[in-house]
Simulated assay, not measured.
Amino acid sequence: MTVQPVKRQKLTESVAEELLSLIVRGGFPPGHRLPAERVLAEQMGVSRASVRDAVARLEALGHVGVRQGDGIYVLAPSAATLSQPFRGLLTRLPQTARDLLEFRRMLEPEVAALAAQRVTDTQEDDLWISVDAQVGAARRGIKLVAEDLHFHALIARIAGNGVVTLVLDTLQELLHDLRQRDLPGDLPDLTIRDHRAVVQAIASRDPVAAHAAMAAHLDTVIQTASAALSFSPDGGSAHD
């Protein structure tokens, strides 16, 4: 009897789902080497080909990595792998860029407010060092893309929420692509001015001011992006 492709596909999906379930539940933590393909096939009652296909699927999604001659290892979640499914949308659908920026506007002011409540003296120093690095880069005529990413990632880490950090890292991965491809050059004076205001509010341990400063900064970002990407800040087309 000939096996229909859809049945093989469903079996592969079932094996992949079972392995992913074990990973998510902590049965196979990050850095752990999975049992050999033969062992997994015997334990799950499937063919080695089904296990191989399932592992390939998990590898494509960034859950595992195959080391030639060594084995299959569980990978920690990363922004680079989580952002992969969205990259095609960002290229094909202009509104995806607007949606990303709107999502950032909804999330990051809350993150800044949380950072203002949790920041330590050492972390405050790190924020001012980041701003100084931006000033130095601007004076040398260097675009602030890397410094900007570092600044916002630093605030997310100060907020101390692992899920938020991973989400924002993923968002920044996508926005980095967008900035490199579609957005106009830096506006360093505006960026540094806004970043200083955010740091001052966080350093003052004032969550309300930190929220407002970050919101104002991202409003400026959206206004700049809307002109470059032909959408209006209120969600419509810039040409409507």
Rank of each mutant, 00 (worst) to 15 (best):
T2F: 13
V3D: 05
Q4Y: 13
P5F: 10
V6P: 03
Q9V: 07
Q9Y: 04
K10A: 13
E13W: 04
S14Y: 04
E18P: 05
S21H: 06
V24D: 10
F28A: 02
G31M: 04
H32P: 02
R33M: 12
P35I: 00
P35M: 03
A36V: 09
E37C: 09
E37D: 12
R38W: 05
V39I: 15
V39C: 06
A41Y: 12
Q43S: 13
Q43M: 11
R48I: 02
V51C: 03
R52W: 02
A54M: 00
V55E: 00
R57P: 01
R57F: 08
R57H: 11
E59Y: 07
A60F: 12
V64Y: 00
R67V: 14
Q68D: 10
A76H: 06
P77Q: 04
P77I: 06
P77E: 05
L82Q: 06
S83W: 00
S83N: 03
Q84M: 14
G88S: 13
L89E: 09
L89Q: 13
L90S: 09
L93D: 14
T96H: 03
R98W: 01
L100M: 15
L100T: 11
E102M: 10
R104H: 04
L107A: 14
V111D: 01
A113E: 02
L114M: 15
Q117Y: 07
T120W: 02
Q123S: 05
Q123K: 05
S130F: 04
S130T: 12
S130E: 08
D132T: 11
V135G: 01
G136Q: 11
A137K: 01
A138S: 05
R139P: 06
R140S: 15
G141F: 05
I142L: 14
K143C: 12
K143M: 13
D148F: 03
F151L: 11
H152G: 12
L154H: 05
R157S: 04
I158C: 03
G160S: 07
G162Y: 05
G162K: 10
G162Q: 13
V163G: 06
V164E: 01
V164F: 03
T165N: 01
T165A: 04
V167Y: 02
V167D: 02
D169A: 15
D169M: 08
T170M: 03
L171R: 06
E173D: 14
E173Y: 05
L174K: 01
L175E: 01
D177Y: 01
D177R: 03
L183Y: 04
L183F: 08
L183P: 02
G185Q: 10
L190C: 14
I192T: 00
I192F: 00
H195E: 08
A197S: 13
Q200L: 04
A201Q: 00
A203Y: 04
D206P: 07
A209Y: 04
A209C: 10
A210S: 08
A210N: 02
H211E: 07
A216V: 13
A216N: 06
H217S: 12
H217N: 08
L218E: 05
L218I: 14
T220E: 11
V221L: 09
A225N: 02
A225R: 00
A228K: 08
L229Y: 02
S230M: 11
F231Y: 12
F231A: 09
D234V: 09
G235I: 08
G236I: 11
S237P: 07
S237E: 10
